[in-house]
Amino acid sequence: MPEVIVNGQPRAADVLPHTLMVAWLRDGLGLTGTHIGCNTSQCGACNILLDGVPVKACTLLVAQAEGHEVTTIEGLAGADGQLHPMQEAFRAAHGLQCGFCTPGMVMAGIGIAMRHGPDVSAETVRHELEGNLCRCTGYQNIVAAIRAGARAMAAAGLIAETADAAL
């Protein structure tokens, strides 16, 4: 039986081979913060971190993550409930309206911060959000939140002060 490390805990994946990661997280483990939006690899509502890198959980078999680390939105906050700097930035900047796209946006934002560092431009954030859709069209505050979150992640030592802008 494949084992996947989910939010730091080894979890046995007692599923059929064609089970998608997003289905197992939601229906098997009850981690419903990972949303199913388009279910066609486009909207990014299902973004999770696979070994620290944002990927679409609707386009990943559970089996492909065997032995790897998965982080969902539920796993970002500290054990004491303190929000991850990117989550806190979304809260402070009101980077959400209905909230459906938010978990995926937060994950995408973490990826943007890791690739582009704390001084990422609004233009770069907008371009890098091409795999995330907000049907409320609330992008203005999402962009502001990701830029603030990137600065906060650097201040917290989660990313370097400089990053490779070409990635």
Binding site: S41, G44, N47, L50, V53, P54, V55, K56, T59, L60, A108, G111, I112, R115, E128, E130, G131, N132, A166, L167
Partner: peptide, 23 residues
């Protein structure tokens, strides 16, 4: 790749979106 054929690295950076490029 960036040293040998930089235009190919740029091509790869323009496929899909960041989450697609990760897989």
């Amino acid at each position: 790749v960036r040293s040998a054929i930089p235009g190919l690295a740029r091509l790869a950076a323009g496929i899909g979106d960041p989450q697609v490029r990760a897989r």
